[in-house]
Simulated scan of single mutants.
Amino acid sequence: MNPWLEAFGWLGSILVVWSLTQARVLRFRWLNFVGAVLATAYNAIVGIWPFFAMNLAIALIDAYWLWRLHRTRHDDATYQVVEVEPDDAYLLHVLRTYADDIAGFSPGFAAVPAAGERRAAFLVQKGDETVGVVEIADEGGGTGVVLLDWVSRRFRDFTPGEFVYRESGIVAGKGFTRLVVPPTSRTDARYLTRVGFHLEDGVWSRATPALAS
């Protein structure tokens, strides 16, 4: 057999297996799709029709889910924002469960607010699954500090935090006219840009439109 053709077949198999190790749903689908397409082509060339049919079916299923994931990634009907109290039992459970992962986003973040600290807390839900948490501290004068903007590993290729920032009146309704991200945050700059933050004098900030009267 042609060694290049054999390498082509092995590459498809490796990508399919590698995809199964991915926690991120979008990355899993893309790797699985590419691997299945390569395996489909390889099996068609060498005439292994049962595996051709199987991999073709996998590629078509992946293509459908990729289309659906991309179509709904900015859809208000797919993701919902639920405001909760900063000491809500379920919120604290989520923060404790993912404490190590959260520390990678916001070093020094404390799940329990300090005495006298005022916070707004929001869960981002996809159905009954919590895919993100946003917590904003009230610094007074209309300024809110984004203490946490965390996304679960499965949805890290998406931007569910955007629904908190763009939700009609949800941030302005808490009295915030400006949001800032503390310098200790490790939130990706590309994500901050996508959700409307701008870098000014070394500080990421975002204006919040006033509520319509």
Rank of each mutant, 00 (worst) to 15 (best):
Gln125Cys: 06
Ala99Cys: 02
Ala121Val: 01
Ala111Leu: 07
Phe109Arg: 11
Leu91Tyr: 04
Ala121Ile: 01
Leu91Asn: 03
Ala110Gly: 09
Ile102Cys: 03
Val124Ile: 10
Arg119Ala: 07
His93Phe: 09
Ile102Leu: 08
Gly116Tyr: 11
Arg118Trp: 02
His93Pro: 02
Leu92Arg: 13
Asp101Leu: 10
Arg119His: 13
Tyr98Trp: 08
Gly108Lys: 03
Ala111Cys: 07
Tyr98Glu: 02
Asp101Phe: 08
Ala121Tyr: 02
Arg119Glu: 06
Leu95Trp: 01
Phe122Asn: 00
Arg96His: 08
Ala115His: 15
Leu95Lys: 01
Ala114Gly: 11
Ala114Asn: 14
Ser106Pro: 00
Leu92Met: 09
Ala103Phe: 01
Ala99Lys: 10
Tyr98Phe: 09
Ala115Lys: 08
Pro113Ser: 15
Leu95Asp: 01
Gln125Thr: 09
Gln125His: 08
Gln125Trp: 10
Ala103Lys: 05
Val112Met: 10
Leu95Ala: 01
Ala121Cys: 03
Pro107Glu: 15
Arg119Leu: 12
Arg118Thr: 09
Ile102Asn: 04
Ala121Gly: 01
Pro107Ser: 13
Arg118Leu: 04
Ala121Pro: 00
Val124Ser: 08
Ala120Gly: 07
Ala121Ser: 09
Phe122Met: 00
Val124Glu: 07
Asp101Lys: 09
Gly116His: 10
Ala111Met: 06
Tyr90Met: 08
Tyr98Gly: 00
Leu123Cys: 03
His93Met: 11
Val94Gly: 08
Leu123Val: 04
Ala114Phe: 15
Ile102Gln: 05
